[in-house]
Structure formats: structure tokens, C-alpha cells
Design a protein around this nucleic acid. Sequence first.
DNA 1: GCGTCCATGCAGCAACGCTACATCGTCACG
DNA 2: CGTGACGATGTAGCGTTGCTGCATGGACGC
Lengths: 300, 300
Amino acid sequence: MDARALETLRAVGSQGGVTAAARVLHLTPSAVSQQVALLQREVGVPLTERVGRGLRLTPAGEALAEAALDVAVALERARAACDRFLTRPQGLVRVSAFQSAALLLLPALLTRVAAIDGLTLECSDEDVAQDDFVALTDRMDVVIAHRPDEEAGWPGGDALRVVPLLREPLDVAVPLDHPLAQRTQVGPADLRDVPWIAVREGFPVARVLAGVGARSGAAPRIVHRVNDFHVVEALVEAGHGVSLLPRYAFGGGARVRLVPLTGVRAGRRIDALVRRDRAERLVVRRVLDELRAVAAALDE
Amino acid sequence: MDARALETLRAVGSQGGVTAAARVLHLTPSAVSQQVALLQREVGVPLTERVGRGLRLTPAGEALAEAALDVAVALERARAACDRFLTRPQGLVRVSAFQSAALLLLPALLTRVAAIDGLTLECSDEDVAQDDFVALTDRMDVVIAHRPDEEAGWPGGDALRVVPLLREPLDVAVPLDHPLAQRTQVGPADLRDVPWIAVREGFPVARVLAGVGARSGAAPRIVHRVNDFHVVEALVEAGHGVSLLPRYAFGGGARVRLVPLTGVRAGRRIDALVRRDRAERLVVRRVLDELRAVAAALDE
DNA sequence: GCGTCCATGCAGCAACGCTACATCGTCACG
DNA sequence: CGTGACGATGTAGCGTTGCTGCATGGACGC
């Protein structure tokens, strides 16, 4: 029973297929398939079953994958046990963040971490749908993700460690010459029939807008779907609609005003997602500590 | 970080050397040495240090070895998670016992286990000194061991699971024509200056006899050292001395009488020793259950 | 029905881990 | 104080393992 093979099985389960697993493991599908087949022969129980042209884990496979996480945790703990005897922490930590969080957090994080030698950060921005953040944790050590404020946490159960970083209000962005621009606050009723610029379907802020619409009585009229908040801001500025904009993501355009939204709880939570085994690495913990500090400094 | 290499490191630690570890792992010393060296390069901390012509683990090595146990436990748990989906338990369990416990427990254990198909027992008798029982757990799944009643448990800390099986009184075995043979009980004072037949130095019952001697005021006069209780019994029968005999180990020789000893707590405890990782295997647990049942039946 | 996508089997090749043997250092014994 | 035995560790060679690349077969969608 090889720990590598167990990790592979986990990937097949969490990524939902051999090919997808191969992608995050930097292997060919053939290698993944062979590893799973070998594991299967070893335990004598079918671990996968075909479903259409794809594949999913059997209950036994799920059970083994779950147990595999504990193996990975134990292995990382072992590594950490040695690292404690090393004079200084050392290693590479891969951090991913969605665009606006990257803008907000990564520069400060990098400066803080630069002071710790031996520790190298590898940052990347990943713009994924809300349901895909968890899958990123297979490939990344730390995934900075966001979700609507009022929704329950992340799926994945105890496989994931969630570190809350920030709660960010969502304001209504309107052009300066808009009737609402002079208001100190707006409510759902004020937003009936305005043209909205929203993010793409499935992305975190989208569901908040749906909630606002529900309160105002009619589904919001979405005229554009744009994920990059800078582009959104430019569109609002040019009078093509209003938008829900995370407060810290606001670029400060002079011809746009952010008006606080009342009457509905509109906000997003920014969390760091870490797989439990990766959270055992001392360097990863260190990065998480720094990340929390950066967020706390922003929160004042 | 390979789980096999970690297991090897553990063996080097618990067996106290490369050669000894190689023996229990069925490898050459060279292979063991290479694995440890590789592990060392991987973690970047010295794990072993030379001491004389031998070797011992550094603190970092100890820490890693301890963590390695959790890895092994997690791996066995994973295997067990699959076994639960298997219709019937299956596998080989290696049980070792010292001679008199083997006589007492193994026949009944084997009959009970024979009813469970798929489960095969491999029994062996191992006559080792008290301090060497723990080391056997590297090579065996279940080690039936004994120790003087009044002494504290087994070394090895949380690496070991100890399953108590029996408490067995030690009686004084005397020949029928001995002055003490008609007594219903004897005390330490009665045993001053009698010639003793004891087990070899370092073996479990030896220290109990030393305790009896201490109570009687003088060191016991040991005239023979014999480990096999049947031989001891024959020597007692022939009038060559008296002995401390575990009650259940008594063969029932007509010309020998067992007289209860009072005034000192004289007894031994029979325990099953199982490494924590091996205890995760379902078949091992099953065998332990049966073993406990056999012991309980004897205890009435 | 055809193209596409996905999992899987097979051949070939590279890398890893083992054994056997040689070497070096340490301890015990004469 | 030399000599023999023992224990750890390098080196060469070989077998096994695990990967890639390619071909095959089944399932979905147009």
C-alpha cells in the first residue's frame, strides 16, 4: 500500500476522473489508471466504477480515499517533526488567489515573507467558479477563496482547513451622475429595474446579487457579465449599468461612487483553504500566520 | 518520504542497529543503510549517529521514528477501511508466545480461529528475556509476553498496545517428601536456605524470586537455572531443589506438590503486546478478541 | 453515424532498490 | 599491542518497478 498511490486515488476522487487527476499530479492518465488498478488488486475490492465515459469512486474507494488523507497528514507531520530540528524553515509554498484578493493581499504577503529566508512563495492568480476553489487545493498549498457571506462554509468536510481572513461588504457602484450617487445608502427597493453588471454565472458574488433581486421583488436585470472588477468599474463609470463591488476591490475611480447597501446582508467572506495534510507543513503554517496578519491589518 | 523507509528507520531505532533491523526486515544491512542515508538526505537533518561500532538515532531520528508510527497506523487504518467492504476477514496473523503460555493458550486459540475461514494463524514459540519481548513486536503481530506482577508495564510508550490476558500466581513447587509438602501455605521465612531452581537471569520470573529472597532476609541460593518448566518440574520431583512455578504451567506431576506462597505478592502477568499499527488490522483485532476469550475462560 | 472524450491495455525505457562484495573503524581477547 | 570478529557503509551490477507514448474500446453529442 503505497502512499503515492493513495494520493493518486484521492486525486481521482476529488478531481472526478483519471484525466483530471493526471493533470494535477503531472502524470499521464495511463500512469494514474495503472496505479489505481494496482491498488485495487492489492485491497481486493473495486475502488472505482464506470459512469458514462467517466469514472467515480465506489463506497470502498471513498472510504480508502478518506483514510488516505490521514496517511498524508501523518507523513507531513513526520516531515514537520524533522523540520523542527532544522535551524530555519525552508521550502516552497504555492499560493493561489482570485484576482481582487491577489491585488489586496499578495503584495503585503510577499514583503512580509521576503524577510524569512529559506521560505519561497510561488503565487498565482486563479479565476475559478465558486465550486472549483476546493479542487484547487490538490494543486496549491494555500487557496485564497471567497464566498457569499450568508452561505454555509466550504464542501470537503474535514479534508479541508478553512482559515477566515476577511469579511468584505459589497457596495453598489454607480456613476457620479446617477440619481443614486448622492444617497448615503440604498436599499433593494431602490434597485428595481436598474441595469446590472454582474460577474459570470457561478462566481461568488453572483448569488448575492440574486439575493438582492429577491428582496426587491423582481429578478435583477443583468446586462453584462464581467469578472474583472476593473473592467466592471470602467463600465459603471461609462454609464453602462450599476454593479455590486467589493469595497476593498474598488479601484477609486473618480467618476464612480460606492454607496452602502442596506436592507440585505450583502458581503463576501475571504478564506484561505488548505488541505489538512498540507497544513501540517511548518512553512505553510507560517505563511498562513502572515496571511492572517495581513488581513487583520487591512481590517482596521 | 517513503513509508517503507520510515518503517526501516523505526526498526533501526527499536532494534538498535542496522544489522539487527535488517534481520527483522528480511533485508541486507546494506539496503537498510542506504534507505536511512536516503531519508537523511531528504530531510536534511542527521538521523543517526555512530556510537562505538554501532549506531543510534539522534533526537531528530527519534522524533521522525515516532512520527513514523503514526504513518504506519494511518496506512493500516486505510487497509482496514477497505477490508470492511470485504465479505470476510482475510489475512495472516503471526503470534508468538513463550513456552508455557503457548501450552496454555495456543491450542484453544487455534481451534477457535480455525472456525474463521480466511484467517490463518502462524504461531511460534519464542523464549526471550523480559527486555526482549518488545523488540519481537517488529517481527510479530501479537507477542504473548509475561512480567512480574508488581512491576510497571512495558517500555515503548504509546508505540505499543498492551492487552492484559491473565494474572497467574506463582506457587512453590516442592517434592512430595519435602517437609513443606504437607503445608497449606508457606511464607518467605520458611524458604530461607532452601536450594532453588530458577529461570535464567533476565527472564521474567527471576525477579520475583529475588523479591522473595529479599523478604526472607538472605539472597536465595540458586543451584540450577532452567527455563523450561517441565524440566524444572522433573528436577523438583527428583529432589534437586524447590522452585517458583506458575500455577497454570504446572504439569501435574504426581510426585510434586504446589504450595501457595503468602507474605509476598508473587505472580506474573501475561499480556499480549501489539504494535499500534498492527493493532489496526481487523484480523489482528479479531485474534486479540479470541485470545482474550481464551484467557477469560481459563480464569474462571 | 461520426467525431470527440475518457479510461485502459501494451511495449519500451529509465530509474530505483536490492544483493553481493569490499572497505573501514571499533571493540574484545590473547 | 597486534589480531580477529563485528558492525556500518560505500560500489558495481542486476532485477523490478513505474513511467511515457501509442493504440484500443466504449460512451456521449451533434
